[in-house]
Design a protein around this nucleic acid. Structure first.
Lengths: 218, 218
DNA sequence: TTTTGTGAAACGCTTCACAGCT
DNA sequence: AGCTGTGAAGCGTTTCACAAAA
């Protein structure tokens, strides 16, 4: 429905949804933007603006109906259908992500790990995710209709692996390797750079200005 | 020197530094904002603005002297002195981070893992990081002058663990658990929310608008 | 001439303030 | 009365465009 929704709004929608799940579990029926705002230390108008991108989701004088808004947000975020995920790189990080509860989430299913080391291929992660040879990525991607690739390989091979993932027709990528990665314009790339995060903390320590509640970034 | 430097500028400084390291290794002596900008698909003026916060670091008509700028950025980011890091939570993620090369970086040293499960305490990670009981956090933090805590515990115990870390006098926190975490204003918190990242990708897939080169976020 | 450093303009996101609905 | 939805104001970041320096 909306023309353009900013990345920041998108990220907040996830947070709202998580909160609504908790509220529903607590038996809360409706919630106002004001109450929601307090939980995240955000401005209430911002929450209303975020939601208003997707139609009139609230009820004036009442607030938002928890169950309805939750359902609608799941739909907006594409969580009403399952998305299949593969992880590239069966190293420490790849394994950890494969078994990470936060990743074995509602709408997501981790289908496979990929690596190029022969002795790893054929094995499984602790939670049972099978490890394939990276050469088979194209086949698996089609057979299992993989939607998302998670890149957890060393920096040196990152771009090569990303190219293979793009080649396999996967249109969404979560990248954990450092350095600049290039993808075609029709592929969505989201990068998490742990070095940048650490160095940002180092910077703030060096200038002695703790500044609370760093904004969540996703 | 500067009054205020935005988080976004700070994050980019890390990227510039990484690039300068590569340039120096390649024997490049000077680099212009234009060349740097091309590597990151950024505007050259933005890079000059970022750097100009810290004095006149460039030479007009020439560009930036790679070795000098690298040195200066290391200083600005506080990487000229070692920072000791502890990881809270010796689960899959904690172990992976303890052994992750990107974390065993220049200025950082991972001193310890902490957990509350008796059978883990006393052991070591693959790379040799010792595991202590979380009760000993205060002591270790003081003895080893820990600067940064990395929180990799389940969501349910996140706030409790964060409180313990703050109590131990640690002023910088990298948090991997989902949900809203509160810290005092003098503590710097940076959160990486993997669920939000995944759901953001899901959102973009659902509306079918791949939009290349997602900005690196740290 | 090349490239930095920087005011001014442009842009985008957030907050304010209030009309309008329940 | 209470709360949403939203135009307008405010504010911070990015880009432009050019004077100043090498």
């Amino acid at each position: 429905m909306p023309e353009q929704v900013s990345e920041q709004t998108t990220n907040r929608l996830s947070l709202y949804l998580r909160c609504l799940n908790e509220l529903e579990a607590s038996g809360v029926r409706t919630v106002s933007s004001k109450v929601l705002a307090a939980k995240f230390e955000l401005n209430a108008a911002l929450i209303r603006k975020d939601l208003s991108h997707f139609g009139d989701l609230g009820v004036r004088g009442v607030g938002y109906v928890v169950r309805d808004l939750k359902q609608r947000l799941r739909q907006i975020l594409g969580l009403d259908q399952q998305l299949n995920v593969v992880i590239l790189g069966a190293g420490n990080l790849g394994f950890a992500l494969a078994d990470y509860p936060g990743f074995r989430q509602d709408g997501f299913r981790i289908v496979a790990l990929f690596d190029n080391l022969c002795d790893k291929v054929g094995g499984r992660s602790r939670s049972g995710v099978p490890i394939y040879d990276i050469c088979d990525l194209g086949t698996v991607a089609k057979d299992e209709s993989i939607a998302i690739g998670v890149v957890a390989v060393p920096a040196a091979s990152a771009q090569v692996v990303v190219n293979a993932v793009v080649e396999a027709g996967i249109k969404a990528l979560l990248n954990f390797s450092p350095g600049a990665i290039r993808v075609p314009p029709d592929v969505k790339l989201k990068s998490v750079d742990l070095t940048v995060s650490l160095e940002s903390l180092s910077f703030h320590l060096a200038r002695g200005d703790g500044s609370g509640s760093g904004k969540k970034v996703g």
